[in-house]
């Protein structure tokens, strides 16, 4: 049977992995490649790698990390794909078909579109025809304004005319493969997912929905699988701060009878026979 997935989200801002709160406050967490190596060892099901840099400077200003100090995002992804033998979704600053091609060619399996999907839904169509819909993930950032859910674009900074339900339907009709639904209100709070929002989306589309925003303890993940039809849960902060986080989260779900992959700690390099 197909399993529900646990997906760490990695936010990359100008060469560093950062923690995010309400899409506005950022704290440095460390080197992009070292963190991926750890997440790989804890048997994450997938990784979502988002570039949220304001400009194109990826200099970590450190050369003592054991990895090259990369000058651009594509080289970072290239390094990451040598450490992570699992599906990688890459997002941020994708505007053209060529941008997608470049990301896939350095080892990404899927790309995540946000602003472009809102500005020009026909781009989703073009992209999914070119690369297959399995390759196109649309992230939708949502905020409650006067008790109504609204989609925000450009890194959560601009309110759009869409409700999350409307936009989800549009992206599905245009050939999106998955939807990553993210609650800006819940971002970095750690007090649980917005289950109402997740249910609204899973009720109106038939493509897989990944729930994001609000995970603060393992039981928040089980809550999503118990009370919604989301196929996957994604989180950033909680997976970075706890040692063996993904393993422990998965163990919690597995031990409680949820349909996830058996938890495992992978000792890299030890299974060459």
């Amino acid at each position: 049977m197909k399993k529900n997935r646990l997906i760490p989200v990695i936010l990359l801002k100008n060469g560093w992995i950062v923690q995010s709160k309400n899409f506005s406050q950022y704290q440095n967490l460390g080197n992009p490649v070292t963190i991926v190596k750890r997440l790989s060892q804890w048997a994450s099901d997938e990784l979502i790698y988002l570039d949220i840099s304001d400009d194109d400077n990826y200099d970590t200003r450190r050369d003592d990390q054991g990895y090259a100090n990369r000058g651009d995002f594509l080289s970072v992804i290239e390094d990451v794909s040598k450490e992570a033998f699992m599906p990688i979704t890459v997002g941020g600053k994708i505007r053209t078909i060529k941008d997608i091609e470049n990301r896939l060619s350095v080892g990404a399996d899927k790309v995540c579109l946000n602003t472009m999907a809102i500005q020009d839904p026909s781009f989703i169509n073009e992209a999914s025809r070119e690369f297959g819909s399995q390759c196109i993930v649309i992230s939708i950032d949502v905020k409650l304004t006067s008790k109504k859910y609204n989609v925000f674009a450009t890194g959560g900074s601009k309110k759009t005319k869409f409700s999350p339900k409307e936009l989800s339907k549009i992206v599905e009709d245009n050939g999106a493969g998955e939807i990553l639904i993210n609650s800006i209100d819940k971002d970095g709070k750690g007090d649980g997912f917005d289950l109402t929002l997740i249910n609204q989306i899973t009720d109106c589309v038939s493509i897989p929905v990944i729930a994001c925003g609000g995970a603060g303890e393992w039981s928040h993940f089980s809550e999503v699988f118990e009370k919604t039809d989301a196929e996957a849960v994604a989180a950033a902060n909680i997976f970075h701060y706890v040692d063996q986080s993904v393993f422990l989260a998965k163990k919690h779900l597995y031990d409680n009878g949820f349909n996830v992959r058996k938890p495992d700690l992978i000792k890299i390099d030890n299974y060459r026979i």
Partner: peptide, 30 residues
């Protein structure tokens, strides 16, 4: 269910083969 079939699913071994050596309980593939 949704198509494409995307994600981790387990395999059910139908016939023994050296390809399965040491696989043990790890049956999930992407």
């Amino acid at each position: 269910s949704t198509l494409p079939h995307i994600g981790w699913n387990d395999i059910i071994i139908k016939k023994d083969n050296p390809i399965f050596r040491n696989l043990k309980e790890f049956r999930d593939f992407y």
